[in-house]
Structure formats: C-alpha cells, structure tokens
Design a protein around this nucleic acid. Structure first.
Length: 302
DNA sequence: ATCCAGGAACTGT
DNA sequence: ACAGTTCATGGA
C-alpha cells in the first residue's frame, strides 16, 4: 500500500529512508522557480490530469505525506494520478539501501550522503520538460537558465490563479511546435536553443518521440544512442534526461561541470578532475551513478 | 574587462 | 574516431 484515500486528502507512505524535508530543500534551490512553490513547510504543485488543472498541497505528516486538493474534490482516477505523479517525482519506489551502503565507504560520497540522508532524485516526469529544460541549461549559468525558463513558461504555459497566487504548467509540445525561432529569440533564447526546442516539440507532436517508447528501450547504451539522434541532444543532455525523466540508475553525465566542481570540493583538489580520473573514482559507483551525481550536485549549495 | 557557465553541432584532419 | 571552432548570452 503506497498511498491511501482519506476522503478530503490522500496519504502517501514513502520508505523509511525518505526525507521530505531534504527534498523540499532541493526544490527550494532557485527563487526563480515557478513550476512549484514552497510556503510554510508546504509544497504547492499544479499538475494536469484528465485534462484538468489540479493543484496539490503537499505536506509532511509523521510517517507519511499528506496531499490536499485546495481547488477541487477530485475523483478516484485523479487521486490515483496525483499519487503516481508524486511517487515518480520523488523517486519513492527506489530501494536505496545498496546506494547508501556503497556510499558509506566511498571517499567522495560519504559526507554528502550522511549530510543529506533521505534525499532522492527529484525527477522531471514530463519528457518535454526534461528535454527542453536540459537544452535551456546547456552552456549557460543556472541563474540565466532559470530566467529563460521563467519567460518560456510565462509566455506559453497555462496557469491557474488561486488566492492571488499564480501557478504554472510547463508549456505543451503542441503549442511550441507552432512557434518560429524568432518567437523564442524575443525571450533571449539563442538561435540554436530555439531551433532545438521547436524541433523537439515538433517530433513529440508528430508522435516520433514519446516517453512510453523510450522507457521500453533495451539497455542504457542503446537508450542513450536513441536520445542523441535528436538534434540538440548530446551526451550530457541524454544522460540528464535518463536521470531525471527516464529514471535510469546508471545514467551518468560525466562531462557535467557541476559534477567536476563538486568532486574538486569534496576531495579538496586545486583543479577540476579530468574525465579519466572521474571514471576511476566512479568504479565504485557502478549501478548508482545517477544517485552519486545527484548527491554531488546537492553538495554544491547549502 | 575577462572568464566561464549543469554543451552541442559543425568543420577539418 | 579525434581535435579545434563557433555559437551567443548573462553572471560573477
């Protein structure tokens, strides 16, 4: 029993080694984030289910997570979708004992795993969002990446006003597929980012690119190869999407600058490690590369 | 100013 | 297969 209907709310029962608090801290990392809101210990998230906008108010209870529906009294089907969404978003079905056991004796991961015990990979369940957010973040600083995302969402996403606060949904591929490069240039996207994003939207709209199909992919290398055929998706983005959306535990964005900085810090190095050096360090992480990277990203901000 | 940022495609060897 | 170049922009 992963969740239970309690009438006016639903209750989700995560594993014992899950910390809602740690996940909240991660979600609060950018003040420019507009796809969720954190206020007084509650997490607010707008999702779409059965073509309806559903606002979720998520809070920690002693041994569970309580999810309320401030704007509606949803039917059974929507309750189930809300529960599924949260189970996926916070990777609650993952058995992490093996990871923590490995990390306990790993020079690089030991401290960060102890410090943030209970944190899980915070995913991006929506494939279009995962792909295009990764493209937006390519080769620019994160602050500006959030600025671009905010403009993108506010121009092309749906929203809901509740008690004077606006909640946003990420734009749909069908809308973005109809744009011209110039439309996104106005938001200060580069030509290339605009081309990539519109191209991805068109592929998804045409049914050539879908999460369901990608999830059926055979193994890690093959899945990565498939993703990299998409224009704008290189090795880094393929791994990022496998990690945040397709939930592949072995996804490993090894060229990531943030990863390099985190390793440098954890090891007290004077320079960033080389790819070869990271490959050696990661021998110990086999099967848990995605979690190793995610925790190391976490170590970069307090 | 100057360097760099949660890279990728393109070009030439 | 590999290395160098170009893209483009804001943050620190």
């Amino acid at each position: 029993m992963k969740w239970k209907d309690q009438g006016s709310f639903i209750e989700i029962f995560p594993p014992a080694d899950f910390s809602f608090q740690e996940c909240l801290i991660f979600l609060g990392r950018s003040h420019q984030e507009i796809l969720h809101r954190i206020s007084e210990g509650y997490l607010y998230k707008l999702i779409k289910a059965d073509d309806q906008q559903i606002l979720l108010k998520i809070g920690a209870a002693p041994h569970s997570i309580k999810v309320e529906f401030p704007i509606s009294e949803p039917n059974q089907n929507i309750r189930e979708k809300a529960a599924d969404y949260l189970l996926e978003w916070f990777d609650m079905d993952r058995e992490l004992k093996g990871f923590y056991q490995m990390a306990a004796s790993d020079e690089i991961l030991q401290a960060v795993c102890a410090n943030h015990f209970g944190l899980r990979i915070i995913g991006i369940p929506d494939l279009f969002e995962a792909l295009t957010w990764a493209v937006i973040g390519q080769q620019i600083n994160l602050t500006f990446a959030y600025t671009l995302k905010k403009r993108f969402v506010e121009h092309y996403g749906e929203c809901l006003d509740y008690e004077g606060i606006v909640y946003w949904l990420y734009p749909e591929p069908d809308i973005i597929a109809e744009l011209e490069v110039e439309d996104l240039r106005k938001l200060q996207f580069t030509n290339r980012k605009a081309e990539y994003i519109i191209g991805i939207a068109k592929s998804m709209k045409a049914g050539l690119l879908a999460k369901k199909e990608l999830l059926q992919a055979e193994d890690y290398p093959q899945l990565k190869e498939t993703l990299m055929k998409i224009r704008g998706i290189g090795g880094w983005t393929a791994d990022y999407v496998m990690m945040k959306c397709l939930k592949h535990p072995r996804s490993f964005p090894i060229a990531d600058v943030g990863l390099h900085n985190a390793i440098k810090l954890q090891k007290g190095m004077e320079r960033k490690p080389t790819i070869r050096e990271i490959e050696d360090m990661a021998e110990n992480w086999k099967g848990w590369e995605a979690y190793a990277v995610f925790y190391l990203w976490r170590s970069l901000y307090e």
